[in-house]
Structure formats: structure tokens, C-alpha cells
Design a protein around this nucleic acid. Structure first.
Length: 706
DNA sequence: CATTTATAAATTTTT
DNA sequence: TTTATAAATG
């Protein structure tokens, strides 16, 4: 008998949750209880006696999966829900490939590299090929990765990708093709997979004879959230996983597709019924989240979309409070008013955690962050520059990655160049001497068949190569740190040879202790490299704390690349950090979340829609959906801020500025649905703002104009 | 000759 | 604030 929790669902939600066998497509508009429905589906399946480890729940973030399983546990009262396979496509791919990768000739010790690492590898290849110094500038390494990623994810030809999305690179097509050619080999030599490989190899796993059946046979039910933001490869994976179980449920909303830059395509959700014959379609159209006025404004924004969507979102939450459009003089005033608005709600009893500030790009919140810090308002920021992308974190992790995977060229290259007197050239020499990369492929081949021979790591410890005098001391430190992390401290290397790799890992010290040792090696380099090394040191300490939760170094590294933690909120001021904090988030990272009060910054053309996205029609439409996603996060209060004036240079004496235009998404009919306020309030009695600054600047100007 | 230092330029969104 | 290029240094 189904539990009483089913009664809390509306008919459409119940239908989706208790649907029988076969493919199921759920079109779920914003705020229609999608998460609850998915959780209910999991709970229902468990009650029906489906084994938890035969359910696969694919979500956009690990957090989303955890949240859904938590709810499913609450509904079904079955702790067994913990054994449900949940996570992102990438994380699940990683897990499956660890188990079955041997069938595809994947090295058992492969590590996963993120986009920045992939970019570094592209750069490595670019300089090896001598493409860096040409008369016309070769694409940046980040651009190379983007092109490559789009190519493999959308399964398009290089030529086509360049023509459509990177027309300024078309002239360099031969060089680009050369780099990509080498890239595959370099990854293989380095025993690494990039994000795209994870999906690609999973797909390959499905179609491999023998193993393909085994993999597909692992699951009886597959549930996919946010299906509008999956790409062609991910759809192929689902098709490949269908062999035995046809019970595939996908949930999504074509109006909320915001990841086409990652080659996501709404074709997936639109074509699902054809790809999976016999699909049952359920639409969730009742919005439980937002008040009517907020919903009306959001719908009005979408009404102007090129393609109209067939859903009719409705709500039963009337309210007198329209969304508010706040026009302010400039960015400084915007920050000021956001703070005051947030605090006002806090006084009304809306905790900071139930409020969020959303913006298009990570740096759009920079001014606000300073203002929040000044007023001791704690906040957490999601999206934008993340922890693992910071140079010092990457430096330290690179050392760990070397221990985990001694063939990782990018990490060696990075770590070696940290040392005094070692640049690209010497780093390559040392790597060659250690047998890393293509310099000495013979040694690597023997490695596979004759496990007794020294790996790069062992030769590093036992017979180190020569280094420039300036680097000797630090190099010795590095060797000691590496030795410690392998667990060979104090023991003669001869003793090591007898053990298997697995045993060696077992004897390695705890991950946190490894980081502590690496930090000891890194500390002097950190202090020399950065003026603000104290702040960065705190980050490294925090990394060590995160590591303390892990038993396996490999797991730690993989988790960090597949599910990176958000940036530290140093500015919030640690002493004042209490339980409650305001949420700052990019619009992308806000997907699937909701708050009582939502503040949207920079509703100006050029910010949203972003200038970068305006090159084609599709880009503009995606920006519109993005704005729609941001608006529909709000339950009771929605504030949209529009600064009139932007300064060209954020700092500096020139007071050049330009006037902004209200975002084109708030057209006149849309604007009528907002309550409009102009912030003319006297600003912060303590110090007047831009006016006095201009006076000072004018006075300074006289010094050189007269 | 390779590395370091100085200078200029650029800067969406994320697994 | 990071990153590519140019000049300077050891």
C-alpha cells in the first residue's frame, strides 16, 4: 500500500510518481513541485520493492541528488534510500568507469581533470607544436577547450563549430586540428580523462560487447532531472542504458534551458517521445512557489520569447505585493539599497538564508560583497570563481595528483615550475628524465607488463635527476613530500618494491596529513609568490580540513574536480560568522532553488542579456530564459535593480561613465506589472557618496589641467 | 640560453 | 586578478 505521503501530491504529481513501467516524460514548469515529485517517485519505487541500488537518479549537482534522496527517505521511512545511485552524469560515469573501465583499456589509476587542467594541457601542446608564436594570434587555451568541448559534446565537425561559434578562429583551423589530434594522445599518456571523456566513455561502455549489457543491466529504473540541460551524448547514454530496462523517467522544462553554451539542447526533451516509443507524458502546471503578481511578470517576460511554450503556469497564491523595479543612480547605490532591503526583510523575520541576490556573472556582485562585508552581513556566494580554481589551491593539489597518478604531465609541469630556476624548458627535461609523457614511451610500456620497474615517482625518490642549483633545496623538499605521501617515509625503497600498488596506497598516511606535508613544502614558495599569502594560507588550511573527511586520496581528488566546493567567503569576516547568511549566486547556480525574497542585480542591457551572448538569436533567447529562471526563484518578494550609470573603469581617476538602458526583457507591458521605485533616498547619512567623490576628482583634475 | 621581471591586456554562465 | 608578450638579467 502506498504511504499517506502520496495524498500531499496533486493528481498530476501522483500520476508521475506512481506511473508503471515504460518511459515517462514529465514537463514541469518552474515551482511546480518537481523535486518533491521525483523524491516521491523514488519513495514509491522503494515501497514497491525495487532494490535501492537498482535505481539511478541523475541530477545536475550532487547537492540536488542528496536533497532528493533525503526527502525520499523522509517519505518512505526507508534508510535504504542511501543506496540509491545518485549524482551527476559525470560523477556516475566516473563510478561506472572505475568498475568497468578495464574493458575499454582505461588505466586503473586514471584521474579526472577539470576544464582549467585541460586548458593547461592544450597550452602545453600548443607550445610543443610551436604554434604559440605565429603572426596571427592563436586562440587562447580556454578557447581551445571550449571549441573542443562543444565539438565532442554536440558531436559536430570542427569546421562547423568554428563557422558558427568561433568565426574569428577559422583561419587557424589546421593548427587547432593539430592540437586536438595531440590532445587525445596526451590524455592517454597522462592517464587522465576530462569531463567530456567521462560521458564519452560511459557511452562507449554501453555499446561495448559484453560489458555493455552488464552496465545496462545494473539498473531497473533511471530518473533524470533537468533534462532540458542535457546534451546529445547524455541522450545517447540513456539510449544505451535502455537495453534491459525501459523505465526511464526524465523531468524538465524547456522554458528553463540555460546551458546551451555547454552544448545542451532542448531537442533532447522535445524528441524524447520519439526516441523512447510508448512514452507517457505528464505536465505539472500548478505553481506552488510564487505569488500571482510575480508569476504574471515572469510569464510576461517569457511571452515575448521567439518560441512559445505550451504550458500554462497558474498559481493559487494571490498577493497585493507586485514585484518591484528599483531604479538607482549607479552601482554603489544599488549595493546600498540591496543591503537595506535585505535588512528590512530580516527585521520582518525573513532570515538571511531565505533571501538571495542573483546576478548574471560572477564578478557582478563584487561591489555588493564589499558593502556586505563593511556592514558585517554574512553571506555565502555560489558560482563565480571557485575554490579549486585559485592558483594556490591548484598548486597544492597538483602535488597530490602526482602522487595519485605519476603520469599526469600537466601536474608535473606545474609543480616543477614552482621551483626557483626551473622554467618550461628545464621542467620538460626533468619530466623526460623521469619518463613522463612521450619523451620515453618505452619505459611506460614496460611499466604495464613489469610492475617491478620504477615508476616516475620511484625514480624521483630513489634516483632523482639533476636540477639547477637554485632549485636544489626546494627540489629535495618536494621529493621528501612526495615520499611522505606515498607512505615510504623512513623505509628503504627496496622494501617498497615487494608491495602491490593497492597495499602501498593502504600504507599511505591520512589525506589530511599528506596535505600538511605538502603545505610544508609549499609554504616558502607561497610566501615568495604572493603578497597576500596569509589569506591564501587560510584557504590551504581549509583544504586540509576538507581532506580530513576523506579516507582515500583518490576519492578526495575526484570529488574536488567533479563536485567542487564553493568559494570561501573570507570577506564576511570569520569572527562574525553565525548560522545565518545571505545567499549570493549566479543565475545559473540558482537553478532549482527558491527563496522568500529574491534580489536581481544589474537589470541593464549588456549585463542581462550579456553583451557576449548577443551574437546570435539563440543566445538572446537563452538570456531571456535565464532571466525567467532568476525571476521564478522568488516566492513572496522579487526586487529587480537597475543602475542608471556605469563607470568605465571601476577604479581610477577618470570619471568616464555611460548611461545604461533597462534590460530589453522588461518591455513596457512587462514594466506595467512591476511596482516602480526610484531610489532618491538620502544615502547613508555618515558619508555622501558619488557626489562628493566627483568633487574631489574635479579638484584633483585642476592640478594638471591648469 | 633559460628564467625572471616588467608591461600590457582582458575578463559569462559550469560538469 | 590573472595571463600573454617583451625586455632584462644571471
Amino acid at each position: 500500500m502506498p504511504g499517506s505521503w502520496l495524498d500531499e501530491l496533486n493528481p498530476a504529481q501522483q500520476e508521475a510518481a506512481t506511473c508503471g513501467q515504460g518511459p515517462l516524460l514529465v514537463i514541469a514548469g518552474a515551482g511546480t513541485g518537481k523535486t518533491m515529485t521525483l523524491a516521491a517517485r523514488v519513495a514509491y519505487l522503494l515501497e514497491q520493492g525495487v532494490r535501492p541500488d537498482r535505481i539511478l537518479l541523475l541530477t545536475f549537482t550532487r547537492r540536488a541528488a542528496a536533497e532528493m534522496l533525503r526527502r525520499a527517505r523522509g517519505m518512505s521511512g526507508r534508510p535504504a534510500a542511501e543506496n540509491v545511485w545518485g549524482g551527476t552524469f559525470h560523477a556516475v560515469a566516473n563510478r561506472l568507469l572505475r568498475i568497468h573501465g578495464r574493458a575499454l583499456n582505461l588505466p586503473p589509476d586514471f584521474t579526472v581533470i577539470d576544464q582549467a587542467d585541460a586548458a593547461d594541457m592544450m597550452s602545453l601542446i600548443r607550445s610543443e607544436l610551436g604554434l604559440a608564436s605565429r603572426e596571427r594570434r592563436f586562440p587562447r587555451k580556454e578557447t581551445l577547450v571550449s571549441i573542443y568541448s562543444r565539438m565532442v559534446n554536440a558531436q559536430e565537425k570542427l569546421r562547423g563549430v568554428l563557422d558558427v561559434h568561433y568565426p574569428w578562429c577559422v583561419g587557424q583551423i589546421d593548427g587547432i586540428a593539430q592540437v586536438f589530434e595531440q590532445y587525445g594522445g596526451h590524455k592517454q599518456d597522462s592517464h587522465v580523462l576530462d569531463y567530456d571523456d567521462l560521458l564519452f566513455y560511459w557511452e562507449a561502455l554501453c555499446s561495448a560487447p559484453g560489458v555493455g549489457d552488464k552496465v545496462a543491466d545494473r539498473f531497473d529504473h533511471i530518473l533524470v532531472d533537468e533534462y532540458q540541460d542535457t546534451n546529445a551524448v547524455q541522450a545517447q547514454i540513456l539510449l544505451g542504458m535502455r537495453k534491459h530496462c525501459n523505465n526511464i523517467m526524465v523531468v524538465g522544462d524547456d522554458a528553463q534551458s540555460i546551458y546551451s553554451f555547454r552544448a545542451a539542447t532542448i531537442r533532447n526533451i522535445l524528441d524524447f517521445p520519439e526516441q523512447f516509443p510508448g512514452t507517457r507524458i505528464v505536465k505539472l502546471e500548478q505553481n506552488y512557489r510564487s505569488t500571482l503578481p510575480i508569476l504574471a511578470a515572469s510569464n510576461a517576460v517569457m511571452a515575448a520569447a521567439r518560441e512559445r511554450y505550451t504550458k500554462e503556469l497558474w498559481s493559487e497564491r494571490p498577493s497585493d505585493q507586485k514585484p518591484v523595479l528599483l531604479t538607482c543612480v549607479d552601482e554603489a547605490e544599488q549595493s546600498d539599497i540591496v543591503c537595506r532591503q535585505v535588512l528590512e526583510h530580516l527585521e520582518q523575520g525573513i532570515a538571511l538564508q531565505r533571501q538571495a541576490v542573483l546576478f548574471r556573472a560572477g564578478h557582478h556582485s563584487a561591489q555588493l560583497e564589499i558593502e556586505l562585508a563593511r556592514r558585517n552581513i554574512p553571506f555565502h556566494k555560489y558560482g563565480g570563481l571557485r575554490f579549486v580554481e585559485m592558483a594556490h589551491i591548484k598548486d597544492l593539489l597538483a602535488v597530490l595528483r602526482i602522487v595519485e597518478n605519476p603520469f599526469d604531465q600537466v601536474s608535473w609541469f606545474r609543480v616543477l615550475q614552482l621551483l626557483d630556476g626551473i622554467g618550461p624548458k628545464t621542467a620538460r627535461q626533468i619530466m623526460g628524465a623521469l619518463g613522463i609523457g612521450r619523451a620515453l614511451p618505452a619505459i611506460r610500456d614496460e611499466q604495464g607488463t613489469a610492475p617491478g620497474l620504477p615508476t616516475p615517482l620511484r625514480s624521483m625518490v630513489a634516483e632523482p635527476p639533476d636540477v639547477p642549483p637554485a632549485a636544489r633545496e626546494a627540489f629535495a623538499e618536494l621529493r621528501a613530500a612526495l615520499a611522505h605521501c606515498c607512505g615510504v617515509t623512513g623505509q628503504p625503497p627496496a622494501d617498497e618494491d615487494k608491495r602491490t600498488a593497492a597495499k602501498r596506497r593502504g600504507s599511505a598516511p591520512p589525506v589530511a596529513s599528506q596535505i600538511e606535508r605538502v603545505r610544508h613544502f609549499y609554504q616558502p614558495l607561497l610566501e615568495r609568490k604572493y603578497d597576500n599569502w596569509r589569506i591564501r594560507q587560510r584557504d590551504l588550511e581549509q583544504l586540509e580540513q576538507i581532506a580530513a573527511r576523506y579516507r582515500s586520496r583518490g576519492r578526495f581528488i575526484t570529488d574536488l574536480t567533479l563536485d567542487p566546493p564553493t568559494a570561501t567567503s573570507d570577506l564576511a569576516g570569520a569572527p562574525y560568522l553565525d548560522e545565518d547568511f545571505l545567499i549570493l549566486s549566479t543565475m545559473h547556480s540558482a537553478k532549482g532553488l527558491e527563496w522568500d525574497a529574491v534580489h536581481i542585480l544589474h537589470a541593464a542591457d549588456g549585463m542581462i542579456p550579456s553583451d557576449m551572448a548577443l551574437s546570435d538569436e539563440a543566445g538572446l533567447e537563452e538570456e531571456r530564459r535565464l532571466f525567467y529562471v532568476a525571476m521564478t526563484r522568488a516566492k513572496d518578494w522579487l526586487y529587480v535593480y537597475f543602475p542608471l550609470r556605469y563607470y568605465r573603469r571601476p577604479s581610477g581617476l577618470s570619471d568616464k561613465h555611460h548611461y545604461a538602458q533597462l534590460t530589453r526583457f522588461i518591455s513596457d507591458p512587462v514594466r506595467a506589472l512591476f511596482e516602480q521605485q526610484t531610489a532618491t533616498a538620502p544615502i547613508d547619512t555618515g558619508e555622501e557618496e558619488p557626489i562628493s567623490r566627483h568633487k574631489v576628482q574635479a579638484r584633483l583634475k585642476q592640478l594638471w589641467t591648469d
